[in-house]
């Protein structure tokens, strides 16, 4: 399982209801169902992912988050998860509002654009960063709203979103201390547990 997903599963209560926005092939929901007895629903738009997730026996709805989430009632899920998709939606702030309306708690993960490698790429080489985590060139990337750890926390403050927990994934397994101490510089992926 992807590292950010391994980190966030401990924030999900056994037997709870989870909505996974951009659930990919359903690997995470399957894990939550089988290991945490979670009742999950996934949203996805990629045809191949949808078929794979259906064959895992999951409930998957083909729906584009950018077209709104108004069909999900208020507080209808215990946790709404959006892993590595915040940077790809048209209006990240509105999606966050919607997530917090639908779920009692939310978990968001995103690639940290403030990571030192990004800064070197942009600051020294003068080029948009391309890495293992962000493998696209600027012209064909689905990631249209990059932000840093500090940017995200500022948005949370502006929107009165409470941060229940923060976790980070560093560049390598050997750097958890650096990433934990200076996340804006050393976290490759930021992980937030939030609520209203």
């Amino acid at each position: 399982m992807r590292q950010d997903l391994r980190h966030i599963q401990r924030w999900i209560a056994p037997g709870s209801r989870v909505l996974d926005l951009g659930c990919g092939n359903g690997e995470f929901l399957e894990f939550l169902r089988d290991q945490r007895q979670v009742r999950g629903t996934g949203l996805e738009i990629d045809a191949g992912n949808i078929t794979e997730a259906i064959s895992r026996g999951l409930n998957i709805v083909e729906q584009n988050m950018d077209a709104g989430l108004g069909n999900f009632p208020d507080q209808s899920f215990d946790t709404v998860v959006m892993a590595h998709a915040l940077q790809a939606v048209h209006y990240p702030d509105r999606v966050l509002d919607e997530m917090l309306r639908i779920g009692r708690e939310c978990i968001v993960t995103f690639p940290n654009f403030g990571h030192w490698r990004c800064r070197i790429s942009l600051g020294v080489r003068g080029r948009m960063p391309v890495s293992r985590f962000m493998p696209h060139s600027w012209y064909n990337t689905p990631n249209i709203h990059f932000c840093t750890v500090n940017d995200f926390e500022t948005l949370c403050r502006d929107k009165s979103i409470r941060i229940l927990g923060r976790d980070v994934v560093g560049n390598t397994e050997r750097q958890p201390l650096l990433a934990g101490t200076w996340p804006n510089l050393f976290a490759t992926t930021a992980i937030y547990h939030i609520t209203r």
Partner: peptide, 16 residues
């Protein structure tokens, strides 16, 4: 149909 099922908390899968 799908939206009503979601609001009714029924397990639903939808493909377009």
């Amino acid at each position: 149909i799908v939206d009503a099922l979601i609001a009714a908390d029924r397990p639903v899968t939808y493909a377009e």
